[in-house]
Write a protein that binds this DNA or RNA. Structure first.
Lengths: 213, 213
DNA sequence: CAAATTTTTGACCGATTGGACAAACGTTAG
DNA sequence: CTAACGTTTGTCCAATCGGTCAAAAATTTG
């Protein structure tokens, strides 16, 4: 595509695979909390329980780690949207999409923050993917949603901004978790906050704020 | 409070004030796009059109710039929420809050990204403010909103998560601007995207997605 | 066992970083 | 003019950074 693919190097040993996984796990932790430039190889090496030269034996450059991490992330990150399907009731379909995204924010907050960091800095490393793969997928799903609107199944509005609002509201609970917990306080900021959020978001997206009366 | 307040140094010259403003303006640009650790004093100095030692004559440490920037930010950042008032129609009041927040995302995207960067990294420098000033303000406004709900003016739901969702959806257009523009493409990603967003958000928050029928 | 190969490490390097400092420069007041 | 003060800069420094390298250690292979 835009550049030559990474050589599909034959990961020899299973041990080598495992060490690479170990490094990627440690790097996810470090990168997601400090950003790319804010993270050092030493930090990642220490988190992975090995020396810096040893880490560089498995990944030649710091960027290689980040790139590998980012490539994996994107697949799993877009999976929920890919599942959004034309079969079944539209409102139910959207409800489950919101729920899936919120579960991802709960279960994979580091991945969410890694992604947010990248976008915040102007997406220097994944811009082609945003304009290509991501845009294609969103356009496709926007068409599906537009179909639902034409069929009178959901209120007519802008499908793209609808998708943005789902991303924003759900990922907020991963990216801004510190703030959410600080504002909710010790009582309501516990594990229950995701269920509260799920309840609220469902109501917001389905019924809005206008009183029933 | 937690630490000794910054000494209210008597900013002597008006020229000195102006130079400090110049530096803060440049630092806002640099910090908001590279994060704190990703930014260098040299970058800020160059953006401000002066040499590094000269910059360090006005701010002794890199952290001082960031701290000053952050303190100013917080005041203006919470202003829209402070304006949320109990007088007037609740739905109208919420509508204007959303509009004001979206305008801030449009007009002050750098401030939004600076704040997002800080939160993403765990809010190491403003945690006390989140648990103190911010929580107090949000709790106060949540009480106002709860009053509206009890009066049947808006649908009963969780006021805290409502505020979160407004923050998330509006700031998304500043923090994830690159992604928004990439997905919308050249046609719809132009200046009109904020008006589209305003229209969509108003409908979402007032009526939700359920068809009128 | 021994040879070959893979893995790990200590030592090191050049570049960049935040910051210090004294000297030079400019401006203003007497 | 000149002394005092505020401003600017070139130079320097120690710490940290990403990354190299050769040699040691461990493991695999025959």
């Amino acid at each position: 595509m835009t550049a030559d693919m990474e050589i599909p190097a034959p990961r020899r040993t299973r041990i080598q695979q495992e060490k690479r996984e170990l490094i990627l796990e440690a790097a996810l932790e470090v990168f997601s909390t400090n950003g790319f430039r804010g993270s050092t190889i030493d930090q990642i090496a220490e988190a992975a329980g090995m020396s810096k030269p040893n880490l560089l034996y498995y990944f030649r450059r710091k960027e290689d780690i980040h790139e590998t991490l980012m490539q994996r992330l994107l697949d799993t990150w877009l999976a929920p949207l890919r599942e959004l399907d034309d079969i079944g009731d539209p409102l139910t379909e959207l409800r489950s999409y919101i729920r899936r995204k919120l579960e991802m924010a709960r279960d994979f907050p580091r991945e969410s923050r890694l992604f947010a960091n990248e976008i915040l800095q102007g997406a220097p490393r994944i811009m082609p993917m945003l304009e290509g793969e991501l845009k294609t997928l969103v356009d496709e799903k926007a068409a599906v949603i537009k179909g639902w609107m034409r069929a009178g199944k959901i209120a007519p509005t802008d499908p793209w901004h609808l998708i943005f609002s789902i991303w924003a509201t759900t990922q907020h609970y991963a990216d801004f978790d510190v703030q959410v917990r600080a504002v909710l306080g010790p009582d309501r900021g516990g594990d229950g906050r995701f269920e509260d959020a799920a309840r609220f978001l469902e109501q917001l997206f389905i019924d809005g704020l206008k009183p029933k009366s």
